Amino acid sequence: MVLAGLSTLVPAMAQNVQNAQRLRARVSAQSIKNGRPTDIFILSANGPAVQFVETRESQEVLQQMASAFKTLYIFETDDFVDAKVAMENRKYQDARNKFHALVNKYASTLSIKDSLSARAAVYELEAAMRMMDWAGVKALVARFPVKASNLSPSAQDDLEVAKIMALIPDKDWNGLKTRAASFLATKKNATRLQQARMKYALGAAAMVAQDWNKALDDFAEALVLLHGSDEELASACVVRSLDAYLRMPDVAKFLGDSAVAAAVEARKHNPETVIPDMQMKARPAHVKEAAALYRLHELMLPDRKLPAKYDGFAVSYKHPAAAAPAQDSAKAPAQAPAQPEKKQ
């Protein structure tokens, strides 16, 4: 398999070859099978060089400069797949712990572009963002073990998004707005999730500035971009939007009505309670929007109960089915009076 151009033995590695991890990788390099793709088993990467063996059982350690590989992809290990399964099952803390362990376990390959350790570090960061643990994201960004140049282009964008979200715990809203807007303007290939996170960040900044309409627009755009890809963030977009509505004078005035308060109290015993027709017809546009958003959250995330402070919106939602009978009767053509039966 091996042609000229390789160091055929690395003595220090050869002494420990039996105990070294062997990560299967698909590579192509001119010095290996004339550049045809083939599998090798990587032991470690010492600076610019990669140490590996030809087969899983081989004892002969070979060395190749990383720059000589046209392609090099390390396959996912069983423990890496296990961590991904935890992530897919939304067990984010469990996944976060597992990926953290993998960053350290495969640290000997960190100098390889898109290494297993690098990918684990990105997934650990992603788990923290899924948890919306912005302080945790900030801490992970501060000690991120991989150079950006050793990440895939998409992972580089993930890291940039994380750096922007890490400004939230510091309340650096001006810096956040500038960098988030720049990201959206320049990263034309950003994923929908990356864009959604930037829109959420801009919405959070607008909330601080008490620009409620701007916040609502940003959170709405984030919801559309998410399309169900991140339930935590989707729920947060709805909650922050409802908070914005609560701060609007016309909404506050309407929810302060005694009939609304009575309906909210009655809802504790009957979840189907709604406000009387007179108040339903008098709802301001902002209340209608907020009530519809509350209902959207119920349908989209039925297992996530919203806090009681939003119950005023729950009782202000007019179910389309409730209006159907009245509409049907209004549209029904008048029937002619029955004619007396003629006698034969």
Rank of each mutant, 00 (worst) to 15 (best):
N46G: 06
N46L: 12
G47K: 05
G47I: 11
P48H: 02
P48K: 07
A49L: 06
V50H: 09
Q51C: 09
V53W: 14
T55N: 11
R56Y: 12
E57V: 12
E57P: 07
S58W: 13
V61T: 13
L62G: 03
A66P: 06
K70H: 13
L72F: 15
L72N: 05
Y73K: 09
F75E: 02
F75D: 05
D79F: 03
F80V: 12
F80N: 10
V81I: 15
A83F: 01
M87S: 04
M87W: 01
M87F: 13
N89Q: 15
K91F: 09
K91V: 10
Y92A: 09
N104W: 15
K105E: 15
K105G: 12
Y106N: 12
S111Q: 14
I112R: 08
L116T: 02
L116I: 06
R119Q: 06
A120V: 07
V122W: 02
Y123K: 08
E124N: 09
E126N: 12
A127E: 00
A128V: 14
A128M: 11
R130F: 05
D133Y: 11
W134H: 11
V137C: 03
A139T: 12
V141T: 15
V141R: 03
A142V: 11
R143A: 15
P145W: 10
V146M: 11
V146G: 12
N150H: 08
L151E: 00
S152N: 11
S154F: 10
A155W: 03
Q156N: 00
D157G: 04
L159S: 03
L159R: 04
E160Y: 05
A162S: 07
A162T: 06
M165K: 06
D172V: 01
N174Q: 09
N174W: 01
N174H: 10
G175S: 01
L176W: 03
R179I: 01
A180K: 04
